[in-house]
Nucleic acid binder design. Structure first.
Lengths: 250, 250
DNA sequence: TCCATTATCTCATTATATAAGATATATATA
DNA sequence: TATATATATCTTATATAATGAGATAATGGA
């Protein structure tokens, strides 16, 4: 197996995940119950998180998210402000098409979701920020690959092998290269159940003024909804969104 | 000794602290060198931080701040949006008075700095966000105490005992209570070298429309600059800032 | 006031993080 | 292009540091 990860750290971020708008403060017992930890352990983690500033205690034993997280969040946005700027654009597309929309940046292992706008439909595909998509079996993955030099592509595909291994699908190298040609030529990528059955996606790139691909956008949802008319509509709406983002991005 | 904190977590946040605008991505060796860690350890931490979404790797072995931090930061701001709103107000005061300015919320152990605006002076007192001030020997601490019920005050002073212990200064309970009366009556607090020698501060409260004290503001700097004329000027400028914040805060 | 609940602390046990070293990969230099 | 050097990644025995049972203190109702 690969190097084991640090369990304490993972636990800590599981604790942080427990916080939300409805639960802005937590105590040791609550955390222990929700995560099945020993009370002592939960308590120690809360104290440590407070020590580093990720949490802050107001009442005795009750902790809320702390100033360090605000700082780190601001810095994260500063070093990569795209997602923040992009969100309202995605919201508009999502409202208009009544399907979920997301934006991905390029991660070593595949497109990394940095912003999502979920549709209001009762049944919808849930994708969380931070999700990494496979390179070969997703519209956005192929889109990124299509716009790389062959060398870069080979390197990313090698790194992405871990994810690729999860899929049982085999890919014929030659026809795959041909597919990428078409994606590059047409300026958009389509996925009709390649990654997950019954899930489809239409994806377009976002270009910087320097001509680099800085983001990919996609509309995704139940395969049954993606007839050719809808695909066409989604594609042109996404392209509009893409230009909007490009123009805002100086 | 008190319960030991979780060292892994502390290390992880030390790693996160290494990131800034000038160093938006780091590798294992860099981290190892800067923190004196073993390369393997640094590497494992980076991988784990990536696993939880706090970091994201673009190039092989190079990590930048990740989307999870943006999310947590947004949530932290959502559960406590004051600091974000307050910053520009502090900046204005700081520019005008040419001294550093900060805002604190109430933490169990003392006023907790949530926002700072540092003066441009070559020599200035540095206070970082997340710093906890002592209750008894700081202007803001006394200000918070002054506006509590005696019961609440006793409870906070007990919890803050750890910090208090750091100071060698002894406080006469009776005259201290009298001081607080004056602070409450006059609507501001003054510190002329009580906490650290040569460091002075003027502090005023910020009130919510419901009449609760939600924040304390203070101008602080080298004692020598804090003559009575300056104190008066700082006080009235801070009061104006306080009303501004109150009015924006619905 | 007492009682139940929760927060905090202590410490022996052992699971888990650690770091030396091996290997793979990238980058620099000739 | 080949070789060298630096860096990233993996493996694994060992020691350290996290763990959780249990004791104690503090809290907040009845």
């Amino acid at each position: 197996m690969s190097t084991p990860l640090n369990g304490s750290l993972i636990k800590a971020f599981e604790i942080l995940r427990l916080f939300d708008e409805d639960q802005p403060e937590l105590s040791a017992v609550t955390v222990a119950r929700k995560l099945g930890l020993n009370t002592s352990t939960a308590h120690r983690f809360l104290l440590t998180l407070e020590h580093v500033g990720a949490l802050t205690s107001l009442r005795r034993g009750h902790f809320g998210l702390g100033p360090r997280l605000e700082e780190l969040g601001r810095l994260a946005e500063l070093t990569n402000p795209l997602p923040v700027m992009v969100k309202p654009v995605l919201d508009a597309v999502s409202r208009e098409l009544n399907e979920s929309v997301m934006a991905c940046r390029l991660n070593r292992l595949g497109p990394l979701c940095v912003s999502v706008s979920e549709s209001e439909r009762p049944i919808s595909v849930v994708v969380k920020t931070g999700t990494v998509l496979p390179f070969q079996h997703s519209a956005q993955g192929r889109l990124w690959l299509a716009h790389m030099t062959p060398e870069t592509r080979a390197s990313y595909l090698q790194d992405g092998a871990v994810l690729r291994a999860h899929s049982s699908k085999k890919v014929d190298p030659e026809s795959f290269a041909h597919d990428l040609e078409i994606v590059r030529g047409s300026g958009f990528a389509l996925n009709l159940g390649d990654n997950e059955p019954d899930i489809a996606a239409v994806s377009v790139p976002v270009w910087s003024t320097e001509g680099d691909m800085i983001l990919s956008l996609s509309v995704f949802g139940m395969l049954s909804r993606f007839d050719s008319a809808f695909v066409e509509r989604a594609k042109s709406r996404l392209l509009a969104a893409s230009s909007e983002i490009s123009s805002k991005w100086k």
